[in-house]
């Protein structure tokens, strides 16, 4: 009961009573003040959101340097880059040959081997299956390498070739080539 009374009184005090000279300015004032407050609250949210993005020390570690000299022809190493495995393989001439011989029309995700490497023998790919994020086998000499001599993902049976391209299985795309650069003939920097 007290409420209805207060409501009625509130309505009479409200901004809508006609004939009051101050009304338009009050509405404008309220609008401006309200917008200002809304902008302030919005701006306040940003530091909270930004604090969850990678911190500066995390970003500083986003490059990994790899010394290629100990990697023999035909072998591969796995390095960690941004917490993910990266496959660095020193391919044999036959493997390069095989990768280049595959007709693009047969590939689920057509891409030439030349577009995926900087220097012929060195294939550098992120070792994460593009299907659901498992790490494919094929780095160790004893691992199964799948039907196309590259990698084989045991989770759902995706086969990758010697260029890291998907050839068979559920994965939709080729293994991702990370951004990298040769800092010398035997040194690369990933990221």
């Amino acid at each position: 009961m007290a409420d209805t009374m207060a409501q009625q009184r509130g309505a009479q005090h409200g901004a809508t009573s006609p004939g009051d000279d101050g009304e338009p300015r009050r509405d404008f004032l309220k609008l401006v003040a309200g917008s200002f407050a809304a902008v302030g609250v919005g701006a306040m949210a940003w530091p909270f959101i930004a604090s969850m993005n990678p911190a500066r020390d995390v970003l500083a570690l986003s490059t990994t340097e790899v010394d290629l000299s100990p990697i023999a022809v035909g072998s591969a190493v796995t390095v960690v880059w941004r917490g993910k495995p990266v496959f660095v393989r020193n391919r044999t001439a036959e493997e390069v040959q095989a990768a280049r011989a595959a007709p693009l029309s047969q590939l689920p995700d057509p891409q030439a081997d030349q577009a995926r490497v900087m220097r012929d023998p060195w294939l550098i790919v992120v070792g994460i299956c593009t299907h659901l994020g498992c790490v494919p086998l094929g780095q160790k000499p004893t691992d199964p390498r799948g039907d196309y001599g590259g990698w084989f993902c045991p989770c759902h049976g995706s086969h990758y070739d010697t260029s890291g391209r998907i050839r068979k299985g559920p994965a939709p795309a080729n293994l991702v080539v990370p951004e990298y650069a040769f800092t010398s003939d035997t040194q690369i920097r990933i990221g």
Partner: peptide, 9 residues
């Protein structure tokens, strides 16, 4: 602004 609105109200 807030004070102006307060005065008005």
């Amino acid at each position: 602004l807030a004070y102006a609105v307060k005065r008005r109200i």
